[in-house]
Design a protein around this nucleic acid. Structure first.
Lengths: 381, 381
DNA sequence: CTGATATATTTTGATTTCAAATTAAACCCA
DNA sequence: TGGGTTTAATTTGAAATCAAAATATATCAG
């Protein structure tokens, strides 16, 4: 490893933090920045002047109100760079891009089939990134990828994922870097979703919350005291293997994931239960269930309530262990809103904790991955 | 809040960290210290010179080996200060003291009865501290207290504990400070036990481990990425309320705590099962059970194995969630060693995680509390 | 209009920390 | 014995940051 010169390194970190505060707070004065960064105003002034000179910040028109000398407000002038984010799991692949103020720019969706080979999936990743990049002149400064299963972010390797055959030690970081020639950051996808909530979703400003990602599988992303938990092998949050109480001690994932609900729906349809759900076998998607619930279908509602009870149990256990401020559900179940959350709250029976759904939609993970790349970026000169 | 001057504050923090490294590593050179603290050797030299001049460090005789100029090794010369630690819960109160190198100095034990009033318990705490302090001329520089239930370490208040009647908003920190005139630090007792493991027990050098405290209740202390989890209301780790799978969905604490095992033993004795356990009702203690297990008593063994199965389940869930390097059991159950750990390991069915028992004994929590006070201490001048 | 007050920013000099060069104190080997 | 090597510690000058004082630019009260 090359020796990092500490002072330069620290200066770059302070610059990045300063730009982050400008991004989060919009227009902001030097004094306000000095307070946020816990540095003295004169030092903040030195940093701002340098970032101003090098074109990363701009002075906006002053807004005058109240007593005292009006501040010279600062805003981002990041020269139109973009960051691309990808997120995929067993069934779907989503890609998006954000600009320097974390505004989403474009969205691309690809379907992954169970029969796809590793090489085909890599092709879809690359096609999605190219699709997001096309037709926008602003340079791409980084790519973030939310990877399912076990990931090694340090070495940019996707280690293992049980739902894709042959997915083992895929050098995804190196491969994408070779194609697109920008820094590539890998992270487990539930952690990308958690970061999306932290930076632009329901977790903004919170130091303790849990993001429960319910899609093909179930996993938890935990922010504890302002830090994202990874565990000693990057394996933290794998609660899909938790044993549920009561019927048969099944795994949480086998009982209450989107795939499990789909399977239960197909079994119920097969056994002839009355429902508005389409009966053509094998083509049922989770969107059908969402629509049926919203249309008031009794079977769909009862399936969701069964799953919600199980999730309520999991929420209760997580709250007891972490004492978070908030639990945020992400994934297709979250789109059901109160129809899902109300029975979860009832089963969890915890108070002092807000239980909500993500408002970021299905591009949640991709947004988090893009924002991750943005947050890793440092001003270059 | 008084304005803290940042530079002085940082200098004090570096001094404390430097002294900590000397404590952990014994004799150590300036260069080695500069590496551990990630500072440049010249800066380390400045700090060492100041601490040497003010009498907190001393130069030891040089140990010569290998090539190069031999280092001038440094050691602690902390003037014989001591730190007192107390730890109590529903039944027992333990107190101890440590010197600057964290060596335990003396131990005091008091029994708490269910009928004790809050005032009586406070009296026992004060008597235990006085007992530890007596007959040693070295000054006490701080007191740490491991408090059961909900604690507010910031304000030194013991907020609530369900197993002591009337235990609510007890201003323990202020009270002890008034009596003993030294800084007092409060912390939840499972977290004290976890810190004891981190600093002087089975968790030394680890960044991710869980300490499972099984006594009157059950709670988990979690070190994640080198940080101790507290949660947003200091309530993290309360897994005593987790619902166990299988029989009746009982709470973990009601199934597998030391008190629960005692109750189960009494029920079994009452129903006439053959055992070497004493039959006089009400006087059974957990030590009796430990001895019976070691003597090969079948009932005692089966009770422990039942509890171990439940703990194994909890370990499995914790490992899935945190991905730790180690699980450390603390409390009287841990004293059983392999008789307890083997069935736990079998039920947990996890690999890549070490499951061990604390080697610090029953003064674990008191040691952690004392070490906490030591770690909070800063050189005064 | 004028001075008092308030808040933001900049200037000035001291302190801390770094980076790099230098010196110190041992061993090794001819 | 005496230079070469190695590692530790110190010296030196520069960069980063702080603390406090000075300056800038507004509002407000009379």
């Amino acid at each position: 490893m090359t020796r990092i010169k500490k002072k330069h390194h620290l200066v770059a970190a302070v610059e990045a933090e300063l730009l982050k505060q400008v991004r989060v707070h919009g227009r902001i004065s030097r004094v306000e920045l000095s307070r946020k960064l816990q540095i003295v105003p004169s030092t903040a002034g030195i940093y701002v002047d340098r970032l101003l000179r090098d074109g990363f910040l701009a002075e906006s028109r002053r807004m005058e109100r109240g007593a005292g000398r009006p501040p010279k407000l600062l805003e981002l002038n990041a020269g139109g760079g973009r960051f691309v984010g990808v997120d995929f799991e067993a069934r779907n692949l989503m890609a998006t891009a954000v600009d320097f103020s974390e505004k989403p720019l474009r969205q691309v969706h690809e379907v992954i089939r169970a029969a796809d080979s590793v090489e085909q999936i890599l092709g879809k990743i690359e096609r999605a990134i190219a699709g997001v990049m096309a037709g926008d002149p602003r340079p791409v400064l980084g790519i973030g990828v939310g990877v399912p299963g076990l990931v090694d972010p340090q070495h940019g390797v996707a280690v293992h994922y049980e739902f894709i055959k042959g997915w083992r030690d895929v050098p995804l970081g190196a491969r994408l870097n070779k194609i697109f020639h920008v820094p590539v950051f890998l992270e487990n996808n539930i952690r990308c979703m958690t970061l999306a909530e932290l930076w632009l979703g329901a977790g903004r400003g919170l130091r303790d919350f849990v993001c429960l990602g319910v899609r093909s599988g179930i996993a938890a992303g935990v922010m504890a005291n302002g830090h994202l938990l990874r565990g000693c092998h990057n394996r933290a949050g794998e609660i899909g293997h938790w044993r549920c109480p009561s019927p048969g001690d099944a795994r949480l994932e086998q009982t209450a994931s989107a795939l499990a609900i789909l399977a239960a729906a197909q079994r119920a349809i097969g056994s002839g239960r009355k429902t508005s759900l389409p009966k053509s076998k094998g083509e049922l998607t989770f969107d059908d269930i969402v629509q049926a619930v919203q249309a008031g279908d009794a079977l769909a509602r009862s399936l969701i309530e069964d799953a919600a009870r199980v999730h309520g149990w999991a929420v209760g256990e997580l709250v007891a262990l972490f004492d978070p401020q908030k639990i945020i559900f992400a994934g297709p179940l979250a789109e059901l809103g109160e129809a899902f959350l109300a029975p979860v709250r009832k089963a969890a029976a915890v108070d002092g904790v807000e239980i909500t759904a993500s408002t970021l939609g299905r591009y949640n993970g991709a947004l988090g991955a893009a924002a991750l790349a943005l947050h890793q970026w440092r001003p270059q000169r």
